[in-house]
Design a protein around this nucleic acid. Structure first.
Length: 879
RNA sequence: GGGCUCUUAGCUCAGCUGGUUCAGAGCACCUGCCUUACAAGCAGGGGGUCACUGGUUCGAAUCCAGUAGGGCCCA
């Protein structure tokens, strides 16, 4: 075998990814095998790969590659979403650079621009995923704005409308004045902001009295239509039925009473601005108040703002505060911390705003989704703790505002034929709409020019909530082969931040449109943070360049680095050192391979006993570890599965096994042993492949020239070897013996090359099945003597109840030997005391299970024996 | 303000239905080694009142209550 001395990740990764693609290993089509399906959480089409994506997709790749090895028909569907707000913001930004405004373009012209942008930037992120090694079925790549995907969305809208679940409502919505669109509640982030609480005095009509209210938003007084007091508040009883004059505008508004008012907050007297606060809106509705909207869509003031018309809300806040002060209306200000809603996308402060929007009723849709997760456990969340969060949201679910005042997305399929609120029809296309409208109005001469489609588009999540169905064409053609084969999918891997946005809604659409769950397991990853626990963000600049990491540490190294510290649901504190560890691991395996491949193989050399026991032992160890790994995977503890693999390969395979089978310098290895070593190496590669696909495939192909259908990526997951527990226990004891010998070498400055002899108090039975050969080889021991009571001029150590002696040249330091023995003795005596304490406690002996008592008794016996040997050694030394 | 959740070694975290899997892992740290696969390595080692206070129990990191301090979600 001709092996390069250095592992060149960059070259290897490019080569094997290409090979995998050329051979279509990632492509799936329905067949007689069981499917294993994952749909990717579609990233934003114009985004770039960040650490969150890397983690997320590494986990998906681990799962899908393992499933592929296990013989499932593995299908990982990739794709992107159109991200209305983000993409539209970017397109608007680009227009601005050219001195253009969105309103300068027609809708179609604007959409052309958006498509241009998508074509230029879209797919970058998918190319980056390939660098990471993602084994997606690229032939299936979908985009939420593909024709069939959009058609699915429109069909679902029409269907839900016809079922009475979609309605148009005039509601208080979250308005993003920068993007000039509404946002769903979930897209609003509440932040604490330091602000001022303004105390304003409103003159009471027809008296000299003034009533003081407290507000954080003095500019909204221009939209006030009432003052509200608590009917139980005796301070204001005398004001009942009176009116006050709004400062600056001079409008006269009523004083109303409602128990909603918190008497403790501020002055206990509340200004009511129904157009700009959702609670005030409710009060207004209840008391039949006028609604005065003082803002334009960019949150500058309109004509109700009087002399502030055209100015921004924050500028007006300062200016009106000054005016109020000058005119004597401002009593005082206090600093005040309050929560302000901001846009997830644009960071703009959200303005509550009344407008016509489309809503989806959630209550009936939520019902099966609640049961599936919390009752029937048809769908499992990992980690389970998220079920509480899920429950809380689902049980308090509110209707979903699905319209957005944007152009980039699926246009709401509602067609208006008149000015009345109900003068519209909903249909999949204009022709059907026309037909419906003619029927509804009885006006047969109505034509398309009399129809006006709603200008708004649908929320991007209204596309992605159908994702597991629509990628397989399950909405447009519910009986097609693909959807029947691949749906429901198996695992979903995503972040907890979109548990409601996306996961919960997919579950709802799944039951509504397939009458079946969309996936069985939901693995929620942690957020990737930096080592100071800060969220990774562009503005902080603490997010490492994903591709640079891959080029520095190799994709395998980065994958290992990310996975090692990402216990499910725990945030991952990213540290480049972890990638370094991953790279180091790759290097370790590479060198192990170089060692093995450098051995000269002899046909005639018989397999030594030590190699024979080594092989038996490693098989057992492999079996034991595979059981652990299976268990970890079953619980979605991917990092633990990796750590178990890491220790198996590094500690057990490299440090113990290879050292045992390694032929003496200049000697060949027996053919039998060599073949066994290679076979075990291959089993390691299979287990490791999901985590480190490139390195493992490369070594696999170096081991021997293989036909294309024998690539590692499509080989088979190891069957679990039988575990010989007795052998594992014996070996564990042997490692302690070897460790004892090594410690003596170190203490006495004896080089490993220098041979030693070992004397043991037992009769050799503790070294069953050639384990003595292991001691000899790894301890560099020439002779083992059994049934020894004591050896003059030797250093001793104990493993279990047995004592071992190593004769050393020169004088033994009796003092320090005795010191060590005394320490051991006092520890053992202390231990004995605690065990006897338990055993002498009647209630323990009577109440504890027999097994536990027996264990304690065994401990007592073992410790007594140990104490005896230590005492003997001490007295021997003392002679 | 409401709900959920967490606090274990210097760091990041395991520790299941209380009992030798009970105090662990990885990294970091310290001490030897350039031993012919690997110094990105090998061998050895130190390090924790399991946040605090009570309770239940023969027995508590584990169960219960309270306190303190983080985090998340919602209003």
């Amino acid at each position: 075998m001709n092996i390069p001395s250095k592992y060149d990740a960059a070259e290897v990764e490019g080569k094997w990814y290409k090979y995998w693609l050329e051979n279509g290993y990632f492509h799936s089509k329905p067949d007689e095998r069981k499917p294993y399906t994952i749909v990717i959480p579609p990233p934003n089409v114009t985004g770039v790969l960040h650490m969150g994506h890397m983690l997320n997709n590494t986990i998906q790749d681990v799962l899908i590659r393992r499933a592929r090895l296990q013989g499932f028909n593995a299908c990982w569907v990739p794709g992107t979403d159109h991200a209305s707000i983000a993409t539209e913001a970017k397109v608007v930004g680009r227009l601005k650079e050219r001195g253009l405004k969105k309103s300068d373009l027609t809708r179609d012209e604007f959409l052309d621009q958006a498509w241009d942008w998508t074509r230029e930037h879209g797919g970058i992120i998918l190319e980056q995923l390939k660098k990471l090694g993602a084994s997606c079925d690229w032939d299936r790549t979908k985009f939420t704005m593909d024709d069939d995907m959009s058609a699915s969305v429109i069909r679902v809208f029409v269907d839900l409308f016809n079922k009475g679940l979609i309605y148009r409502g005039y509601r208080m919505v979250n308005w993003d004045p920068e993007a000039k669109t509404t946002l769903s509640d979930e897209e609003v982030i509440h932040e604490e902001r330091q602000g001022l609480l303004y105390y304003l005095a409103y003159p009471v009509e027809g008296s000299d009295e003034k009533v003081v209210i407290a507000t954080t938003r003095p500019e909204t007084i221009l939209g006030d239509t009432a003052i509200c007091i608590n009917p139980a508040d005796e301070r204001y009883t005398h004001l009942k039925g009176k009116k006050v004059i709004v400062p600056v505008s001079g409008r006269v508004i009523p004083i109303i009473e409602d128990e909603y008012v918190d008497m403790e907050f501020g002055t206990g007297c509340l200004k009511v601005t129904p157009a700009h606060d959702v609670n005030d809106k409710n009060l207004g509705d209840k008391h039949g108040l006028e609604v005065i909207d003082i803002f334009n869509e960019d949150a500058s003031l309109n004509h109700h703002g009087l002399h502030y018309e055209g100015k921004d809300r924050f500028a007006v806040r300062k200016e009106i505060a000054r005016e109020l002060e000058e005119k004597g209306f401002l009593v005082k200000t206090e600093t005040h911390v309050n929560k302000v809603g901001t846009s997830e996308r644009t960071k703009a402060v959200i303005e509550p705003r009344l407008s016509d929007q489309w809503f989806l009723k959630m209550e009936t849709l939520a019902r099966p989704a609640i049961e599936a997760v919390l009752k029937d456990e048809e769908i499992k969340l990992f980690p389970k703790k998220f079920e509480n969060t899920y429950r809380h949201w689902m049980e308090n679910i509110r209707d979903w505002n699905i319209s957005r005042q944007l152009w980039w997305g699926q246009q709401v399929p509602a067609y208006y034929y008149g000015e009345g609120k109900e003068d519209f029809v909903v249909a999949e296309n204009q022709e059907q709409a026309l037909e419906l409208a003619r029927k509804k109005t009885g006006n047969t001469s109505l034509d398309v020019s009399g129809l006006r489609q709603d200008p708004d588009v649908l929320d991007t999540w209204f596309s992605s909530w159908l994702w597991p169905i629509s990628v397989f064409g399950g909405i447009l053609d519910p009986e097609n082969e693909e959807i029947k084969y691949y749906y429901p999918t198996n695992d979903l891997v995503t972040g907890p931040d979109i548990l409601f946005f996306w996961v919960a809604r997919m579950i709802m659409s799944g039951y509504e449109y397939r009458n079946e769950k969309p996936f069985t397991n939901v693995y929620l990853t942690g957020l990737v943070r930096d080592s100071q626990r800060r969220k990774m963000s562009k503005s902080l600049g603490n997010s490492p360049d994903a591709l640079k990491l891959i080029s520095d540490y190799g994709a395998d190294g980065v994958r290992v680095g990310l996975l090692l510290s990402s216990a499910a649901g725990n945030d991952l504190l990213f540290d480049e050192g972890l990638c370094q560890q991953g790279k180091g691991f790759a290097n370790k395996i590479w060198n192990a391979f170089r060692l093995v491949s450098g051995w000269e193989v002899s046909e005639t050399e018989p397999a030594p006993k030590v190699a024979e026991v080594a092989v038996r032992w490693y098989r057992s160890k492999l079996g034991q570890t595979l059981h652990e790994i299976e268990d970890h995977f079953a619980k979605y503890r991917i990092s633990d599965a990796l750590m178990a693999t890491y220790k198996l390969i590094w500690d057990d395979f490299c440090s113990w096994f290879l050292e045992m089978v390694k032929p003496a310098y200049g000697h060949p290895i027996s053919k039998t042993t060599f073949e066994q070593v290679i076979a075990l190496f291959e089993e390691n590669l299979k287990i490791l492949h999901p985590f480190m696909p490139f390195l493992t495939e490369d070594i696999w192909q170096h081991i021997e020239k293989r036909d294309s259908d024998k690539a590692l990526v499509v080989s088979d997951w190891p069957s679990i070897p039988e575990v010989d527990h007795g052998l594992l226990e014996g070996f564990a004891m042997v490692t302690e013996v070897i460790s004892g010998i090594r410690t003596i070498r170190k203490d006495k400055n004896i080089a490993f090359k220098e041979v030693l002899e070992l004397h043991a108090t037992h009769n050799g039975s503790a070294f069953n099945g050639n384990l003595d050969e292991v001691v000899k080889k790894l301890g560099n021991i020439t002779a083992l003597h059994y049934n020894i009571e004591k050896v003059e001029g030797s250093v001793s150590f104990r493993v279990g109840a047995d004592e071992y002696f190593v004769p050393v040249a020169g004088s033994v330091d009796v003092e320090s030997e005795m010191e060590k023995l005394k320490e051991e003795l006092s520890y053992a005596e202390g231990f004995l005391k605690s065990v006897r304490g338990k055993l002498s406690n009647e209630r323990f002996v009577n109440n504890a299970p027999e097994k536990v008592v027996a264990i304690e008794k065994q401990k007592e016996a073992d410790t007594l024996a140990k104490i005896l040997t230590i005492k003997e050694s001490l007295s021997n030394l003392g002679k």
